[in-house]
């Protein structure tokens, strides 16, 4: 099967800054592909190139066989986007926002109403469709943007940090809608995030740092790079237990701070065996699985800090306040 997104050696320079540095990847149809990386890694720049807003300095990008530079209008028909910054019109109602979108994408007149109402129902905002968007919470606005992005039935949906700035409950809530999208709406998802937990649900992840892809694979594959699971075990007699684990289960075990520390590849499958073998001697057991953060730490030597604000965001903040001043006269 040919991939729905193909990117080869893509590079984008802004003056002396190389925002995207020779990246290549493919996304298969009907999957969720995640771009994981800290602020300033080049995630938004990559999305802007794929959705025809920016032209790359070099390299190729294609969506559904259409070149993102040369056949931009074909590409635009086939994609939907939820930008990192909200692009809803706050003075307009939820319904009006979606209605205007359906005009722009030439949704047939007799289908407009149904598609808008279905999308609003899908994200649970049907009851509030006639309210101006400025009264919506951050989570509702995000959901409305997701609803808007699927009205024209795109083949590929881009979500740029869809849960940024949302409280944990809205994040979980939005996340449920997003994970249902590929099956319910027959769409491929390309999303970026710097939250590790969100990347877990992707079928495939590319970890990007300073414009370069430093690792690609399924979440499981990536975690294998930092080694397998670790089981911590407390027993009545650690020395005796280690002996049993080594001889009868053939596993490597060591004592650390009063706990037995066992490295295994599949921790969840191993725990029942341990308990069966050691029986009553077990006092407590816990399983530690590697996280994507461990992967990032191992590859770059630094942890990802989601709360860091990039320079770009600060600039936008200052422009926003400038604009407010101007609007008032």
């Amino acid at each position: 099967m040919t991939p729905i997104i193909t990117v080869e050696n893509l590079t984008k320079k802004f003056g002396s800054i190389t925002a995207v540095d020779g990246i290549s990847f493919e996304v298969r149809e009907g999957t969720i592909f995640g771009f994981l990386g800290p602020n300033g890694a080049g995630k938004t720049t990559t999305i802007n190139i794929l959705c025809t807003l920016l032209s790359p300095t070099s390299g190729n990008a294609a969506i559904d066989g259409h070149d993102c530079m040369k056949e931009s209008s074909e590409v635009r028909k086939n994609i939907g986007i939820v930008f990192q910054d909200n692009t809803l019109d706050k003075e307009l109602t939820a319904y009006e926002n979606l209605l205007f979108h359906s005009y722009l994408y030439n949704v047939p007149k007799n289908e407009r109403k149904k598609r808008i109402n279905d999308a609003l129902n899908f994200v649970g905002l049907y009851e509030r469709k006639d309210e101006p968007v400025k009264r919506f919470s951050g989570g509702m606005k995000r959901r409305l943007e997701v609803a808007r992005s699927i009205i024209h039935q795109p083949k590929v949906l881009f979500l740029d940090e869809p849960t940024l700035g949302l409280d944990p409950q809205s994040r979980t809530n939005l996340w449920e809608f997003i994970s249902e999208l590929p099956k319910k709406h027959d769409v491929t998802i390309f999303m970026t995030t710097h939250y590790m937990e969100e990347a877990e649900i992707c079928d495939k992840i590319a970890i990007i740092d300073k414009g370069k892809i430093i690792a690609q694979g399924s979440p499981e594959e990536l975690k294998k790079m930092v080694g397998g699971d670790v089981i911590y075990l407390k027993t009545r007699n650690n020395v005796a237990a280690i002996d049993v684990i080594k001889t009868s289960l053939n596993l490597d075990a060591e004592e650390k701070n009063g706990e037995i520390f066992i490295s295994v590849s599949k921790g969840d499958a191993c725990i029942p065996k341990l308990i069966n073998t050691l029986a009553d001697a077990v006092v407590s057991v816990r399983l530690q699985r590697p996280t994507l953060n461990d992967v990032f730490l191992k590859l770059t030597g630094k942890a990802m800090r989601p709360e860091a604000v990039s320079g770009g965001d600060e600039l936008k903040e200052s422009i926003r306040s400038y604009r407010k001043k101007f609007d008032r006269g």
Binding site: L53, F83, N86, T87, L104, R323
Partner: peptide, 17 residues
């Protein structure tokens, strides 16, 4: 200028128009 940076113009610019 600001619609392009913050909002609606971005939505227009990615639409097939």
């Amino acid at each position: 200028i600001w619609d392009k940076e913050f909002g609606f113009m971005k939505e227009m610019l990615v639409a097939p128009v």
